[in-house]
Design a protein around this nucleic acid. Structure first.
Lengths: 165, 165
DNA sequence: ATATCTGCAAATGTTTTGCACTTTT
DNA sequence: AAAAGTGCAAAACATTTGCAGATAT
């Protein structure tokens, strides 16, 4: 509630809303809070469920509409991991990165390569383009999974008691 | 009809089907033909429309079911360009490449970077993973588009008479 | 006051599925 | 004959939208 980075995010969002002549509402404020507090990547449904669980009064429609605004405002960033549901993650104070997704456990691992970024930029420029955004996702299998048909990390997590991280 | 690469694709598909104890049918044969003949990237709907236009007897359900098989057999490759529709392209005798998609005209430009591939592999291996597949898509804007709000290539295509390439 | 929001339910668009019938093997 | 494939219409999903009433500026 008195998290300074939350304060900053709310301020950023208010500024964005003002510029667009939109309004700050309880639902939107709660979405900012919940989205920042969510660790890792989350879907619209997950954010909605969380808000409901916390007793907030909000609907799926509002969550979808709000996520679009949060994304436009740069509070969250949306990704498409090709599984039919858009995923979001906080974008404020987070340096840009790409993703690896385990094809078995769906765990998302972040990574960053200055070198790849640079090459990408060069390739686009060769063709006269500017990159607006990009998606680099590696779909990976743990080595152990290839051999055993099971994912080491998933098993590890299960062993630790299924807290859904 | 006597395209050797079509013959090869059909043979490859038949082999795949046999191994899976599935059957070759007229619809599936027509799908292979049409898919290979389709230039660029196409959606399930586009392939279906084409087959219908050509007078083939096929349904959307069969196209969807067939595309999954064609993909599993390595005849086509599916991509998700985050616009809500899966796109396919022929995968036989085509070297691996990544994509740039113009955010305005949606044109798809292919490119290839040995260097990026190498770095990706290294990054995954550092974490103990093997890459099963990957998606590298640059969403780009023509420089001209940034200035004028219109896409140079789109205009060029429109000027040339709207043949949908 | 007035423009914007919200929730609801209905609509959307893509892809999948159940089922009765047809075709391959 | 048995197993698999097909078309149809219905279902499934994630996401969007129209609208009437509620709320922020």
């Amino acid at each position: 509630m008195d998290d300074p980075s939350l304060q900053q995010a709310v301020a950023t969002f208010e500024e964005f809303l003002r510029a667009e002549r939109l309004k700050m509402t309880g639902q939107r404020r709660q979405m900012v809070r919940a989205a920042l507090d969510q660790r890792g990547h989350f879907t619209a449904e997950e954010l909605y469920q969380r808000l409901v669980r916390e007793g907030e009064s909000v609907s799926m429609a509002t969550v979808y509409r709000g996520l679009r605004l949060l994304e436009d405002a740069g509070i969250v960033e949306g990704h498409d991991f090709a599984d039919g549901q858009r995923r979001y993650e906080r974008a404020l104070q987070v340096e840009h990165h790409d993703h690896m997704v385990c094809v078995d456990c769906r765990e998302v691992i972040e990574f960053r390569s200055e070198e790849i970024e640079k090459i990408q930029k060069g390739i686009a420029e060769e063709q006269g383009f500017d990159i607006e955004e990009h998606n680099l996702t590696l779909y990976v299998a743990c080595r152990n999974w290839r051999k055993t048909g099971r994912c080491a990390r998933r098993e590890e997590r299960e062993r630790q008691g299924k807290r859904k991280d």
